[in-house]
């Protein structure tokens, strides 16, 4: 059985990075590294409280100051980054797996099944995502894993539509015909030929999904049903700091806000750049 090589030209082609996309990639890499290694290198506990040293402004001992319980803000920011980044990544992955399988099934089989599946997507799209998210998060309010799954399970609609559209055009290609004439079954065609060739769309969409999942974590934490204290996340660090804004504790408000803003924005810029490349490659082919 000969499998078609996935059309990864948009990844492989000579890459001329615009400076903004390059900066964003470097920033994301830096943030991920800092959150992964930082807590171990810092020798400061994110959980140790020191009430005598509460609301301390940034100093040599606490680079980003301390919060209302005297916990080191930098350590909490880095540990919280792990949580928020993992929520973003896992939720995006869940959304993409559901969306890809759902969308490619609808696009590949077409006919009444396609109509039915896409009608179901219409139904879900008629209900505000945040309503579903809030409902499910309130119902399954518990650990981090359910939070990731709930965010992922409410964000697959857009991806499924995009993948379906992609598969609709890809399934008319000759290599699909060739694979079928060699005796490949539907499952093999979908998973070995169509989905790998839709990789461009899938990767681009995943990038955007990571950004929106991180914002969903932030929103849910603000609404009190996201990541549970005392576990830090960028979302609950930021929403916890809302009450400190009047006390002027800028070191509690700015760092988590800027961390979310710059990281989410970087993912969006990278996604936008990938999409532009893809469109250009499509126009040239």
């Amino acid at each position: 059985m000969i499998d078609a090589l996935p059309d990864m030209t948009f990844v492989r082609r000579r890459i001329r990075l615009p400076w903004i996309a390059a900066t964003c990639m470097a920033w994301v890499a830096l943030v991920v590294l800092a959150c992964a290694l930082g807590p171990a290198l810092l020798h400061v506990s994110a959980a140790a409280t020191d009430v005598a040293d509460a609301y301390a402004a940034p100093s040599a001992a606490h680079l980003l100051g301390t919060d209302g319980l005297g916990r080191d803000e930098l350590a909490r920011l880095l540990v919280g980054g792990r949580i928020t980044l993992s929520v973003g990544a896992v939720a995006a992955l869940v959304a993409m797996v559901i969306g890809t399988i759902y969308g490619s099934t609808a696009g590949y089989y077409g006919g009444w099944l396609d109509t039915l599946l896409m009608r179901v997507v219409d139904v879900f799209l008629s209900v505000p995502t945040l309503f579903l998210l809030l409902f499910l998060a309130a119902m399954f309010h518990g650990n981090l894993v359910t939070l990731m799954i709930v965010i992922g399970a409410t964000s697959w609609l857009g991806p499924s539509r995009l993948v379906r559209g992609e598969v609709l055009t890809l399934k008319e290609r000759l290599y699909v015909e060739a694979a079928r004439s060699l005796g490949a079954g539907d499952g093999r065609i979908i998973f070995r030929h169509l989905i790998p060739n839709a990789a461009g769309t899938i990767i681009t969409t995943t990038t955007f999904m990571v950004a929106s999942a991180m914002l969903a974590e932030t929103a849910l934490s603000y609404l009190g049903i996201g990541v549970r204290a005392p576990m830090p996340s960028w979302g609950n660090l930021l929403s916890g700091a809302q009450s400190d804004i009047f006390a002027g504790a800028y070191w509690l408000i700015l760092p988590p806000g800027l961390a979310i803003l710059t990281t989410v924005c970087s993912f969006n810029f990278i996604g936008d750049w990938l999409r532009e490349r893809q469109e250009r490659a499509l126009a040239e082919s």
Binding site: I20, A211, L215, T218, A219, Y222, G235, L238, S239, Q242, I245, F246, G257, I260, L261, V264, C265, N268, F269, D272
Partner: peptide, 25 residues
Amino acid sequence: SVFVFLSWSMPTFWFGTILIAIFAV
């Protein structure tokens, strides 16, 4: 475009709080 992307990537409640801090407080 940079400003558009930044406002697109901002947690809504953060923006609202900044508005309150500046224009109300």
